Simulated scan of single mutants.
Amino acid sequence: MTKNLPFLSVPQIDLGLLFLRVSGAFMLFHVHGWPKIMHYSEELVRIEDPFGFGTSFSLLAAIFAEVICAILIALGLLTRLASLPVICVLLVSMLIVHTQWSIAEGQFGWLLMIIFGSIALCGPGKFSLDAVLQRKRVA
């Protein structure tokens, strides 16, 4: 049966990590990152500034995590490193900015934290640019 379906011979953990990376990065980019770019002025007025660095800094930090890092994660490039700003932005959002939210109200944020925490712990898998670069370094 695997002769007819060659993708079944691929280690399933690597397919799972690819799916996790691409789907998680897409959701982060589509739901959070892209709207911040498209509506920058409106977001600048609405975004919280929990550390007093200014709303511009807060918004640019969120855009960096939700756009640049999301793209890097989807590509599997600098994956573990790119996961850290995403996790930081999510932690600030969930533990400092939205402390009044119940788990149900913040479930999307918590699920994103689980996804990107898993990616940071497990790495990108073999279907990633990180793996390609690693193979080139070894060869």
Rank of each mutant, 00 (worst) to 15 (best):
F26R: 00
F19P: 00
K36G: 02
S56M: 06
F51A: 07
F19V: 15
E48L: 00
G54H: 14
M38W: 01
K36W: 01
F26G: 10
L18W: 04
S41K: 04
V45N: 06
F51Q: 06
H30D: 12
S58W: 02
E48D: 04
Y40C: 02
V31K: 13
I63G: 07
V22D: 03
Y40K: 09
M38S: 10
L18P: 10
L20E: 08
L59S: 05
F53C: 10
A25F: 05
P35R: 12
A61M: 11
H39T: 14
I63N: 10
P35N: 13
A25H: 05
F53Q: 15
F26A: 15
F64K: 04
P35I: 08
M27D: 00
P50H: 10
W34L: 14
M38C: 08
D49T: 06
I63Q: 02
E42C: 03
K36V: 03
A25C: 06
K36A: 05
L18T: 15
A25Y: 01
F29P: 01
S23V: 08
R21F: 02
L59V: 07
H32L: 08
L44A: 10
R46C: 07
V22W: 05
H32P: 03
I37T: 08
L18V: 10
D49S: 05
H30A: 14
V22G: 06
G24D: 01
L18M: 14
W34C: 02
A25I: 06
S23T: 14
A25T: 03
P35V: 11
L18S: 14
Y40A: 08
D49Y: 00
L60H: 10
F19M: 09
R46I: 00
V31M: 12
L20K: 09
K36N: 03
E42D: 11
G54V: 04
A62P: 06
S56F: 15
L28W: 03
G54R: 13
M27T: 15
R21G: 14
S23I: 03
F51W: 11
H30M: 13
S41C: 13
V31T: 13
L44D: 04
F29L: 15
L18D: 05
F57T: 11
G52P: 02
F53M: 14
F26Y: 15
E42H: 09
R46P: 00
F51R: 12
I63E: 13
I47L: 00
D49N: 07
S23P: 03
V31A: 12
A61W: 14
F51M: 13
K36Y: 08
T55Q: 15
S56N: 11
I63P: 02
F26D: 06
G24W: 03
S58G: 14
K36R: 11
T55D: 03
Y40R: 09
L18Y: 07
G24F: 03
A25S: 07
H30Y: 15
F53W: 11
S23Q: 02
T55S: 06
F29E: 09
E43A: 08
L59I: 06
P35T: 12
F29N: 12
P35Y: 11
F19K: 05
D49W: 07
L59Y: 00
E43N: 04
R21P: 01
L59A: 10
V31H: 15
F26I: 12
L60M: 01
E48A: 15
L28Q: 06
K36T: 07
W34Y: 07
R46D: 10
E43P: 01
I47G: 08
P35G: 11
